[in-house]
Design a protein around this nucleic acid. Structure first.
Length: 600
RNA sequence: GGGGGUGUAGCUCAAUUGGUUAGAGCGCUGCCCUGUCACGGCAGAGGUUACGGGUUCGAGCCCCGCCACUCCCGCCA
């Protein structure tokens, strides 16, 4: 006999029925003569009761010795709980099952950490959770994250299908394209010294699919990057990869806004307003000091370049004289910042090349600052007015070239927000989502050390049409048809309209990026070749699927939404990978290992 | 590659800042308990203080090294 119901199903209406439930022993409360077992499966919990006058003695005895997380099958009769004993905290709390037969399907050993109490389980060391991931995933929070991930993946597929997209799988054995992220290499047994590479993204294949006439492609694509990890970066991750033909940027915006509306509705039952706000890269840097601004709180950057152009404070007037700017933010209520916090912020400033960080603490009606003695009344007035300075504020300055000054204050703004959150002076509604498009990125950036231009995003990004004449005369002013989708300060994805004319692509590769022609041919020859045979105008986008799910689940670590994630060193604590290879495997692959693994 | 944090019982944390036998809650084991749902009560077991050195009369605590986990910078076209 198989189970008749799951553990989140029985209600008072089922009273009197005999049911079979399968599940894990979530908790056991032994009152001596009476024994309660909360049975849990992935749907929920049901209280079962062992009564010695109903349950045969040997089964009762067995039940009293069950460890947590043992797997059992219970047969019993549903009844409404006696007056005053309902549990309003679980959905099945009005009923209980009187056990008349107990079958132990599998005993569980004593657990390395308890998973029945969320308060305790949430604090368990992540190392231990990853080692026993199968136990960690039994926790309702984690199970809920997995479910959200599945629901959203299916909603995305369904939405894209409705929009006429084909899901096409692209190879994960690709070739090395040594620009961009470091790649994982896969040795080729058939030809010594040659390698596949795992793709950083299906970028080139999806563009080829446009040449193939697919017109609308998407894929939940696994991607690989052999770079150092972060809370929001894993060596293998999933992206929602999209490409369309015969479209412009507006089509992408509309598609993604529709997709995200569907996703938010599916996962959170929320209606998010669209269209999303659009800001330029310049505005993002200028107002928030970052190209993925979190606009859920203020503390925007304010410009004082003109006010301090002729200031007697040489650090400021000197920066302006050198073509730079003076900018400031007001960290409201942070005048009580500790020496350590000021130091952390100063370190940020220094990491961008600043000599220090100027600040003003407004305490007891007084401006406490090493630099305030240089300020004229007019300068002070301007600060007070434009920054709305009040008692308890902390004003922080950056005087440098525009980009540097913006980036410094952008970092400090985020740091201040974290400190203020910790002090309870800044609260953000966890159900608030500020979506925005960041557009008009520069197509090219300059590498001073290498003395050459490189693509801000990737070399297939099309320039804004009216800027094409500038490509050769003033590359830095060329805007790319690139767009990023940002939510709450998280870069959710990015994409662009691509170059579809082989001559423009060739110009970018060889004249702008200065890649030698033979290298271009070696690395991208097949693309340029494909583009000769009727490449439609096309563009696309990729969304970080793990980050998307993390945002929906209210966590900042994508490890919480990936079933089996890697540690910061790229290892799997459960399977102990990566590990050594057998000599025979290495021989087959024509590989000789020079440095032996540190551990035996 | 660099910087910060953490590591004490199965788990979560203490240990008066270098001083007697390293404690508590939960879990575990045993006994008691017929309305619990964080059940309750009594008793008990459980420690190479991550690891290796050093300083000291004496180290969980200080110093050096090392390992693991974690956060950040670099990196992530």
């Amino acid at each position: 006999m198989k189970r008749t119901h799951h553990c989140n199903e029985l209600r008072p209406a089922h009273a009197g029925q005999t049911v079979i439930l399968d599940g894990w022993v979530h908790s056991r409360r032994d009152l001596g003569g009476l024994l309660f077992i909360d049975l849990r499966d992935r749907e929920g919990r049901t209280q079962t009761m062992c009564d010695p006058t109903v349950l045969p003695a040997e089964m009762f005895d067995r039940a009293s010795r069950l460890h947590s997380e043992s797997v059992v099958r219970i047969t019993g009769r549903v009844r409404v709980r006696p007056e005053g004993t309902t549990n309003t905290r679980i959905a099945t709390g009005e009923i209980e099952v009187i056990v008349d037969h107990l079958e132990v399907l599998n005993d569980a050993a004593v657990l390395p950490f308890s998973i029945d109490d969320p308060e305790i389980a949430n604090k368990v060391n992540e190392e231990l959770r990853l080692q026993y991931r199968y136990l960690d995933l039994r926790r309702p929070e984690m199970a809920k994250n997995l479910r959200t991930r599945s629901k959203v993946a299916i909603a995305i597929r369904s939405f894209m299908d409705g929009e006429g997209f084909l899901e096409v799988e692209t190879p994960t054995l690709f070739k090395s394209t040594p620009e961009g992220a470091r790649e994982f290499l896969v040795p080729n047994r058939r030809e010594p010294g040659t390698f596949y590479a795992l793709p950083q993204s299906p970028q080139q294949f999806k563009q080829i699919l446009m040449v193939s006439g697919v017109e609308r492609y998407f894929q939940l694509a696994r991607c690989y990057r052999d770079e150092d990890l972060r809370a929001d970066r894993q060596p293998e991750f999933t992206q929602v990869d999209i490409e369309m033909s015969f479209i412009d940027r507006e089509d992408i915006y509309a598609l993604i806004e529709g997709l995200l509306k569907t996703v938010w509705k599916t996962a959170l039952g929320m209606d998010i307003p669209a269209p999303f706000k659009r800001i330029s890269f310049y505005e993002a840097l200028n107002r928030w000091g970052i190209d993925k601004p979190d606009t859920r709180f203020g503390m925007e950057l304010v410009d004082f370049t003109e006010e301090f152009r002729t200031s007697s404070f040489k650090v400021f007037s000197g920066a302006v004289g050198a073509g730079g700017v003076v900018k400031a933010i007001n960290a409201k209520g942070l005048a009580g910042a500790t020496q350590g916090q000021i130091e952390t912020m100063t370190e940020y400033a220094k990491s961008f090349g600043a000599k220090g960080l100027a600040f003003i603490k407004v305490e007891n009606g007084e401006w406490k600052s090493p630099i305030v003695k240089f300020f004229t009344p007019a300068e002070k007035e301007a600060l007070t007015a434009k920054l709305a300075i009040q008692e308890g504020d902390l004003i922080l300055f950056a005087a440098d070239q525009w980009l540097t000054a913006c980036e410094i204050l952008g970092k400090i703004r985020l740091y201040c927000a974290e400190v203020l959150k910790g002090q309870g002076k800044l609260t953000i509604d966890p159900m608030r989502f500020d979506f925005l498009w960041v557009v008009d990125f520069p197509l090219l950036s300059y590498d001073k050390e290498m003395n050459r231009w490189y693509s801000s995003h990737h070399p297939f990004t099309a320039p804004v049409a009216e800027d094409i004449p500038l490509l050769k005369e003033d590359p830095k002013r060329v805007r790319g048809q690139h767009y990023d989708i940002v939510v709450n300060g998280v870069e959710l994805g990015g994409g662009s309209i691509r170059i579809h004319q082989p001559d423009v692509q060739k110009t970018i590769f060889e004249e702008i990026l200065a890649i030698p022609p033979d290298e271009t041919r070696l690395r991208f020859g097949y693309m340029l070749e494909a583009f000769r045979f009727g490449a439609p105008p096309h563009g696309g986008i990729a969304l970080g699927f793990d980050r998307l799910i993390a945002i929906l689940c209210g966590t900042t670590s994508i490890r919480d939404v990936i079933a089996f994630p890697k540690t910061a060193k790229g290892t799997c604590l459960m399977t102990d990978s990566p590990g050594p290879a057998a000599p025979r495997q290495l021989r087959d692959l024509h590989i000789e290992v020079k440095a032996a693994p540190a551990k035996a």
